[in-house]
Design a protein around this nucleic acid. Sequence first.
DNA 1: AAAATCATTTGACAAATATCAAAAAATCAG
DNA 2: CTGATTTTTTGATATTTGTCAAATGATTTT
Lengths: 187, 187
Amino acid sequence: MSKLTETLQKFVDLEEKSLKGFLEKGKILRISKSEKLIKAGEICETLFFILEGSVRSFYFKDDKDVTISFSLEEEFITSMSSFITQKPSYENIEALEDCELWAISHKDLMETLARYRDLEYVYRQLLEEYYIRLEEQLIFSKFKTAKERYLELIKNKPKIIQKASVGQIASFLDMSIETLSRIRASL
Amino acid sequence: MSKLTETLQKFVDLEEKSLKGFLEKGKILRISKSEKLIKAGEICETLFFILEGSVRSFYFKDDKDVTISFSLEEEFITSMSSFITQKPSYENIEALEDCELWAISHKDLMETLARYRDLEYVYRQLLEEYYIRLEEQLIFSKFKTAKERYLELIKNKPKIIQKASVGQIASFLDMSIETLSRIRASL
DNA sequence: AAAATCATTTGACAAATATCAAAAAATCAG
DNA sequence: CTGATTTTTTGATATTTGTCAAATGATTTT
């Protein structure tokens, strides 16, 4: 749990009561490999923080599933667009391995943010951080070749290589399974 | 200026003094076609709102410039990562045509957000909106073919077709000038 | 352990797009 | 207006990556 506290305190020291108010609104939950946190078509009511484990977010394109992101320990994860708009999600999120998560409902989060000014400030900074990351991902996908994208993934999230299947990684990197297999063979 | 007010009020009715406090921190500025709002290498100190005109954001890849986004009237624009982190920008932003902008400095914005709670809330919602848009763009670029990406641009931002050059649009859509030219010929 | 299922690799070929070169069209300067 | 420059289009070819099919390897089930 201190992982969550540390992540929150990265930006500013929160007052004790804000931190406490926030933490006690959440629940710990454990899910096992392949279980879904969020299902396409449903409204995403929950923001998760990964205490242990890793998850994968994906869409369906025709019949195949296409990976959008991988998230590891100490990251917040939700179907952002569904969580924010409270409309049905297009995205699925599933556990890549057994996970321990901290979870807070949309309603509780909104109430907590409204109550504690310093928490609202932290939430804003989190949003900013996530925005920048997404922007980096977009630019990265524009500028790099298939091989460079793979090498970059190894550098940034090496753990993913062990935890996700070739198919999941390939769709994340926007290439076919075969192309990824050939890139790996060439290294 | 009421365009800016409307955009802010889209989320919640701001108190009169918050709105006033915010608006009077900004300045109106006019720039002519091709002038730069933000230059790569410099720290981006300003958040702009486009009252009239349109702008283009781009990076340099080797020697060529690659368009990252187009922004039209009634949108906020800045080099988000530089503005947020206050580190040098990798991004350039230039006017596609003569523009009228509203501009607020990072320092003034931060002070204003700290002073007016309801403004901070609006800023958060703006961030959320921009996040969702970026996410859509990322997914969109993953799922569509060259032709579909062009048709989507026509649907979403038809004005851009008139205002930007073929080269600018091609790099935005992640294809060569020649491919774009052929797609246009085939319609 | 053998059979069955699933995931990954390899090969042959096809499709999409990029690159290079040149022609045509549009824009600009004097 | 006219020649010069730039932008866009068109054509020929090369490259990258995808698709399909088969082979190999790994994992699970009985």
